[in-house]
Design a protein around this nucleic acid. Structure first.
Lengths: 192, 192
DNA sequence: ATAATAATCCATCAAATGATGGAAGCGTGT
DNA sequence: ACACGCTTCCATCATTTGATGGATTATTAT
């Protein structure tokens, strides 16, 4: 039950963000009383942080997957693999993308876990992509470039309801165009 | 007074989004009673839509500015100009970037105005950037590429509180690095 | 100066929300 | 059968929120 609540919370927080999502929405989604939710997870903030930890760990696993797959490949191939893996993952879990983007706005401590971990991930990727030698000493430019890549993926996922009608395509086609576009934009920059 | 309320609403909605921002916050920010706010602007939804129309029009003006400046220039120069103008504008008005990104999530009719106008702008830009001949018939790839450019700018603005500590730089330096990074990523793709 | 109009504030309402206490149900070991 | 702990639900509370009616003040026109 605790896991079922977490899964629903993840979806709901991803749809409407922390402030707008109510504990009643989540409980209703699971099909239980709100007291049961509070019994398992303490207050709303605790539940939210559990959600953030959940997706943070998933993202870490995806990054490890990418790292494993790109070993020994050229930079352009590395990028293409990274784009494919991350797009597949995020299209299958759009709430992850939403939660990350929503985290950009929060000035309070919502999702502070994610912020800390992301900084670590960015450094690891910078080294894996050959933008820096030492994980302890990453140039700002390298960090900015990694973030630019990461960001450009996120918006296409979170903005699907916005962009897809604009492009007048079905979901599968949309996913394909997104991958193609990201490769078109990102590969030339890093493989000159 | 009506204008002062709109200005505060714009800032507050940009900080915390539609659902989390209360009419009391906005009224307090202006220094008036909430009844005065309701007297001038009707309900919360009306005020929000006025804010969206306000920024939508500002964005249109910025795009026109870009279009005017890029006339006759090469594609790489066009892109650099577009990046500079849009970054300067958005860094000066970060709430605009926030409101656009927040609009990506809303499944209800919040900011429907913006969605409609953005589709129009994207087509105009696609033609101005030489990605399409006819404004009525834009290939999906062209639309996707314009959106990718646009998106990559937005996140750096909205995510400043998140990214800047990660890069350990001051505000001016951050803005410079963002411009530099965007040019590094975007220019090669479009000027092959 | 006075009447009419516009603008502002105070008090208040109904609904929604985060949260809790206590009763009732359920399973397990003895 | 019974006691004990774990889980779930019902009822309820204080606070917040969007919104409004009515009194009060400021402004404008005649």
């Amino acid at each position: 039950m605790k896991a079922r609540i977490l899964a629903s919370a993840r979806r709901k927080f991803g749809e409407t963000g922390y402030g707008t999502t109510t504990t009643r929405m989540i409980a209703k989604d699971v099909g239980i009383d709100i007291s049961t939710l509070y019994y398992h997870w303490g207050d709303k903030q605790d539940l939210y942080e559990a959600v953030i930890m959940d997706i943070t760990d998933e993202i870490r696993i995806q990054f490890l997957e990418v790292e494993r797959k790109v070993k020994g490949k050229s930079v352009s191939i590395r990028l293409e693999i990274a784009i494919d893996v991350m797009c597949d993952y995020l299209f299958a879990h759009p709430e992850v993308s939403n939660l990350i983007l929503l985290g950009y706005f929060s000035k309070d401590r919502h999702g502070v876990t994610l912020h800390a971990k992301m900084a670590e991930y960015v450094s690891v990727i910078a080294v894996a992509m050959g933008l820096a030698e030492n994980k302890q000493q990453i140039p700002v430019q390298a960090k900015a470039r990694i973030l630019a890549v990461w960001n450009s993926v996120l918006n296409f996922i979170s903005g699907e309801n916005f962009f897809r009608p604009m492009m007048e395509v079905e979901r599968d086609r949309y996913a394909a165009v997104v991958k193609e576009t990201l490769k078109f934009i990102l590969v030339p920059a890093f493989s000159k």
